[in-house]
Design a binder for these strands. Structure first.
Lengths: 127, 127
DNA sequence: AGCTTCCTACGACAGTGGTAGTAGAGCGTC
DNA sequence: GACGCTCTACTACCACTGTCGTAGGAAGCT
């Protein structure tokens, strides 16, 4: 039903981000990283999330030493893609224009980003 | 907790969109519009959604004749704003760049949109 | 061998979202 | 004035998400 390939809650995504940002880790390490980011969750909560992420096919685990090590199986880019797509679909039947407009107008972009966007736009014009 | 001011589910949002797209309506009319859009929901389901939207402060109703007429209290733009913000926060700690990049690269834009974006970018450069 | 510590498995529970049924009020028609 | 249609209020229910507790195994310290 949902347009999202990968249907993840906010807290699950936060866990996945830790895997993206810090690479393969044990439950405990993930928990510590979450704590550093101000997300105060219990060990078993993290375990639950990692288990669910694995069930959903977006992470996997390998036994190592005494503890399982979890790693992301999907990239940040692919999650971005599906979530952005879901958002466009929900709000504008899939049209990207209004959201790009909104972003360029209302959100801060660094000078580098602006340059890159200008370049992309120029490339588009080349067609 | 969630970054979204207005925390709406997909189905709730679909109802809100009908209010945006067709203006103030009765429950029955909303239901019919949803059916036209392929969303086969029961009358009472629509009623539930409208009631919830009202509770959440994003719609309101006025008694009129025999039935309540519901209308949106928040604009599509403001919902776009908060959902886009939530998405940026979730995935990139709020940075807009990567998502703009993704959109320009991967989503179809009309010629008009491209022109508009180029203009916006030019304006940004003017600062 | 017993105690401590760390790990995983499993279960639990409340909140929310999606979906709908039923009951009862108001009104039009015979 | 009884029947039926339409509307709203209330309740229900399941799946999913966020959150954790408890139980029990492995492994080391004393």
């Amino acid at each position: 039903m949902s347009k999202r390939e990968v249907d993840l809650g906010d807290a699950e995504l936060a866990v996945l981000r830790v895997l993206w940002d810090f690479g393969p880790q044990t439950v405990r390490e993930v928990m510590e990283h979450l704590h550093e980011r101000g997300r105060r969750v219990a060990y078993t909560t993290v375990l639950t999330f990692l288990t669910r992420l694995e069930q959903k096919g977006v992470a996997r685990s390998d036994r190592n030493d005494q503890a399982y090590v979890y790693r992301a199986k999907v990239s940040r880019a692919s999650v971005t893609k599906s979530r952005v797509k879901a958002l466009l679909e929900e709000l504008y039947d899939g049209a990207a224009g209004p959201v790009v407009m909104h972003l360029v107008e209302n959100e801060r972009l660094t000078a580098d980003e602006v340059t890159q966007i200008r370049k992309l736009i120029a490339d588009l014009d080349a067609n």
